[in-house]
């Protein structure tokens, strides 16, 4: 009985996911598709040609993935300790710090970018990939901290206290308790950060100044194109990159994280 409910739910979700994707794929090959036709009347590869002929496509892919990976790494490095403190310790002004850490997603990105642009020009990282990677931290860090914080709260500090009382070092606590226990948080944070970083247009445009060509820099101008096929092919590529990235991360996780069987059952 319970199973049947689940399979019904899954088919609904499956349809909701499948249809938009299938629609995108069909659109990317459609030349003429007017209402009330169910399928396009004429097909072509114009949408994909425009994509492939884009001279900076390969460069943009490389830059996007590179910046995305750096942003993910810095996020994990900052988010992990910050979230742990917020989850386990109480101190004066904690709620202020929490609100402060959420600020970047409450203030419009463009306003942040303009202020930061001035600073970045002065310290000399404007128009450079390093500046872009830095500015991508603004819209991502808040999410990372939120995700890890709830992760830490779920796990609790008891394992750590026990391990410490048995003489484990901080490093051992990290690698053999939190890392495997928080693997789900790492997965979701990584995916989210990467997608956010990939889709930043305004921040990248202003701080990168056109010198840093990411996929969004190429893709967004095409959104004002009338040709739906071009938009669809770009969108598919755009959606495919994070999937590829998460696949690589997954392989890395499988290779390096201990207690795999444990983490699998915990999900």
């Amino acid at each position: 009985m319970k199973n049947r409910h689940y399979s019904f739910l899954f088919s609904i979700i499956g349809l909701l996911v499948f249809f938009p994707v299938a629609f995108l794929i069909v659109t990317s090959f459609a030349l003429q598709w007017t209402w009330p036709q169910i399928l396009p009347t004429e097909w072509s590869t114009i949408g994909w040609n425009a994509l492939i002929e884009e001279p900076k496509l390969f460069l943009a892919l490389r830059t996007s993935i590179g910046i995305g990976a750096i942003v993910v790494f810095i996020n994990l490095a900052i988010g992990f300790p910050a979230a742990k403190v917020l989850a386990f310790q109480s101190f004066k002004g904690k709620s202020f710090i929490e609100a402060f850490l959420l600020m970047p997603i409450l203030i419009p990105g463009l306003a942040v970018a303009m202020g930061l642009h001035l600073t970045m020009i002065r310290i000399g990282v404007a128009d450079h990939w390093a500046g872009v990677a830095l500015v991508h931290l603004v819209p991502t860090i808040p999410y990372t901290i939120k995700i890890f914080r709830s992760g830490f709260e779920r796990v609790g500090s008891f394992y750590e206290l026990q391990a410490l009382s048995l003489g484990a070092s901080q490093k051992e606590v990290f690698t053999s308790i939190y890392l495997p226990q928080l693997i789900t948080s790492i997965r979701s944070a990584t995916f989210l950060i990467f997608v956010i970083s990939l889709s930043q247009y305004a921040l990248t445009a202003i701080i990168g100044g056109g010198n840093v060509v990411t996929l969004a820099m190429i893709y967004f101008p095409y959104l004002s194109s009338v040709n739906n096929a071009v938009i669809a092919s770009f969108s598919l590529l755009f959606a495919g990159i994070p999937l590829l990235f998460i696949l690589i991360i997954e392989i890395v996780i499988r290779m390096f994280i201990p207690y795999r069987s444990l983490t699998n059952t915990q999900q």
Partner: peptide
């Protein structure tokens, strides 16, 4: 470099 003119001006103004 493809960029909307508004953003270009914004960038120049900051510079």
């Amino acid at each position: 470099v493809a960029m909307d003119t508004n953003e270009i001006l914004q960038k120049l103004m900051n510079e």
